[in-house]
Amino acid sequence: MSLLEARNLEKQFGGLKAISGLSFSVPENIIFSVIGPNGAGKTTLFNMLTSIYKPTSGSIFYKGNNITGMPPHKVAGLGITRTFQNLQVFLNMTALENVKVGCHMHSNSGLISAALRLPSVMKEEHRVRKMAMEVLEFCGLGDIADMPASALPYGILKKLEIARALAAQPDLLLMDEPAAGLNDTETMELCDLIVQICQSGITIILVEHNMSLVMEISHHVLVLNYGKLLAQGSPYEIQHNSKVISAYLGGE
């Protein structure tokens, strides 16, 4: 059974159709890449899958449930989370605190019990700290835990955003251009990290411009052009698809 299924998705902004007639399904436990030229509608698609935008028409099914138009935090509650193209790290916190926010759904103390610092809160804090440290170490960020996020370099922040998403223990992780702005070494590390995340049982949908990265790690690639599905298949099939080649090179 597929984990996520999009049926006939469409999104209009004013007169502009950013996405139209898009259907696809994402099987469990693979790396599913979405590629396409700039403006093809990749980020719009992500925003619909995470309910930041409501589709103009069409529907999204996750584990067999219709999640179209559900509030974003509820979608997250079902096990979908994401990283962002332009970083959305909480710069007003330390790295560790960022990841602790990722643990939000796996803890439950409220405002009043926190104000009174009840023993249950202390226990929870302890547990959350341990959870967050484990995730940071998994991502190789253990030694910057107590640094303020605002003082960290771009490459580290990109990783931190992934760590924060992992702390939410998702089943489906959407990554929006994780390699953008990284140097070669950082990209290699990222590549390993994504493969490791997938091996730990998390399905990944990846939007990325770095083609060698996409072709190396993806199991399935979907190509968008002007908001429409151009082609999909294995990396090999996509690399040899004449429509894809002409869309990218601008030929006829």
Binding site: I52, P72, T81, Q88, V89, F90, V101, G102
Partner: peptide
């Protein structure tokens, strides 16, 4: 810090 990121983490 970022309302959208918070929502994506289930807040």
């Amino acid at each position: 810090g970022s309302e959208i990121a918070a929502q994506m983490l289930g807040v």
